[in-house]
Design a protein around this nucleic acid. Structure first.
Lengths: 337, 337
DNA sequence: CTGAAAGCGCTAACAC
DNA sequence: GTGTTAGCGCTTTCAG
């Protein structure tokens, strides 16, 4: 293993000079710099991460906590994780992957050990038990998602409230008066994951404003459950002419079932989805949708965290404005029977 | 920040004693141990990761390199990643997440800096440019996937050759003589990702042995492309009575299209999928399938890597035997026309 | 613009 | 069964 001292010797300079060449924290003559850089290359030197962390009390690692559950919005999470990892690299950070499993202990461990300089948490619940640890003094953190109380926290998320409103607004404008909402699995609501409830808020309040009747039903993914849910909805509200779907694994089943029942999309019923772009585009009907900006959220989260780590801190809640893209699944409400 | 020295002082023992209580590398009297543990708790001590890594030249971190592409088998990768992370924790390791983006440089960086003690690589190509770095001396590594030449490497993967064979065998036994294979996207084959080619091998050789005619077509996910692919297949081989699908995002489109064309599954055509269990179970028809054992692969990979790190090394290729689960999508071939 | 040297917090001989 | 101590490789004052 090549050490900084060896590089120094090889280049005929002192250790500190090599260190400063690396960090750029003081000016170095062009000649010296070149000699040192040459030695570094020749010897294949890589600074030792542990030593560096010990001496500087910075690990250049950020921790990313992802939920354990693989049952929900998996592609979104993956996309976020990848965006976080690549963005982090461009800022000189590596990413430590933590699963929610350990809960608050993981936060304590990582922060306490100096394994990471800061952390990004996904899948935040409204009353998340990890929040107290983040609020106080601890290391900087950024949440992807919005808890009930955001004081002292930095959060990034899609504005799900506005998203819900936007969906209803779109449908109302097309003349729909009876809208059904296919939501996430019941467990998601029970767990009080913020985004689901906020979407619902947005849907409801806009529905009130637009004179739209709303029926909300959580739904596990898959055909079997979707079939039951749909039957129930059409039973309770036979006049339903539009659906808002916030559940990736319910999208395709819904479309198939509608088709089977001879309900044409968008002539007889409209469908608006809240989902990643790929899902919207690859579905059997190109879906009018509000896209979940996974990459953007990941990038944002890292950039805010890095800013905080650099002392350019700012406690702030960033809500990304939703954008509704009209595709082939939504159209004017059919004439009343 | 609480240091080991402070714990030692608080407990009235020496630093080394605290260290040994923590590592268990020498015997400690029950009394001392209790006193130390109490002090650790009371002071909220967490060993500093950097210092520990520096002194012991072990970081207790393993690196996981995942592919950048989010277009392919995303849920599988996510499942593997999570299995890796949780298994690693049970062995006292944390996981560093690397994207394939940096390529071989990432390997050099991580290994050279001692950031991680070993690494797990996913999405290995047949002639992967990272392999030379892993083969030689370097830190221990485990591949998930199988390159062309495995000498000096440890690999874990589903036995895709056997998987292909198993699918054909199943269909042949049911009397099918014309089988079409819906494969991964063309890019996957062009990139020479091993698993796709090995599956094809298995399919083909078993087809020869069983007197089955095989037609293989790569396919991007989604409805539009699947429709084109299917039309072409039925045009070339109108007698096709069975499909093997190895492409998650083609499964549902295929089923929907067959339905639209009035071909009943499994009465008119059989479908066998190679996919994660969830996909097989949640599809519109419960699919006869060979499951991709993502969790098992992740777990295995970590356990082998940890074994290597502990000196219980073993260069070895582990191929997990495929298991075909018969569900509702396969049945006897229809009587010949 | 460059050197010298004091730690950072922990591990692992080496002593007893 | 426990204490002492010499580093691990780097960063960062303090000097010049």
């Amino acid at each position: 293993m090549v050490t900084l001292a060896e590089v120094a010797q090889h280049a005929g300079v002192s250790a500190s000079t090599v260190s400063y060449v690396l960090s750029g924290k003081r000016s170095i003559s062009a000649t010296t710099r070149r000699r040192v850089e040459e030695s570094i290359r020749r010897l294949g030197y890589h600074p030792n991460a542990g030593a560096r962390a010990l001496a500087s009390s910075r690990s250049n690692v950020i921790a990313l906590m992802i939920p354990l559950r693989t049952d929900m919005y998996v592609p979104v999470m993956m996309e976020i994780a990848i965006a976080v990892a690549t963005t982090a690299r461009t800022h000189g950070y590596d990413v430590l992957l933590l699963t929610g499993e350990e809960g608050p202990d993981a936060v304590r461990r990582v922060v306490g050990s100096g394994l990471a300089d800061g952390m990004i948490l996904m899948d935040v619940e409204l009353e998340d038990e990890r929040l107290p640890l983040l609020r106080g003094d601890g290391r900087p953190s950024v949440l992807i998602g919005l808890p009930a109380d955001t004081t002292g926290l930095t959060c990034v998320d899609l504005d799900f409230r506005a998203t819900g409103a936007l969906c209803v607004e779109h449908l109302a404008a097309l003349g729909h008066r009876d809208v059904a909402v296919i939501g996430e699995a019941p467990a998601v609501y029970e767990r009080h994951t913020g985004f689901a409830e906020r979407t619902l808020d947005g849907l409801r309040s806009q529905a009130r404003d637009s004179g739209v009747r709303l029926l909300h039903r959580p739904c596990e993914g898959g055909y079997a459950t979707m079939a039951v849910t749909l039957a129930r909805i059409l039973d309770e509200r036979p006049g339903t002419t539009a659906f808002v779907v916030q559940n990736e694994s319910a999208v395709e089943p819904l479309l198939a079932l509608l088709r089977q029942q001879g309900r044409a999309v968008p002539e007889d019923v409209s469908v608006v989805a809240i989902c990643p772009e790929q899902v919207a585009v690859q579905a059997s009907v190109r879906l009018t949708s509000v896209v979940i900006p996974a990459q953007e959220m990941g990038r944002y989260a890292v950039e805010h965290l890095v800013a905080k780590l650099d002392g350019r801190g700012d406690e702030e809640v960033v809500l990304i404005a939703p954008e509704l893209t009209v595709r082939a699944s939504s159209g004017p409400a059919p004439a009343r029977a």
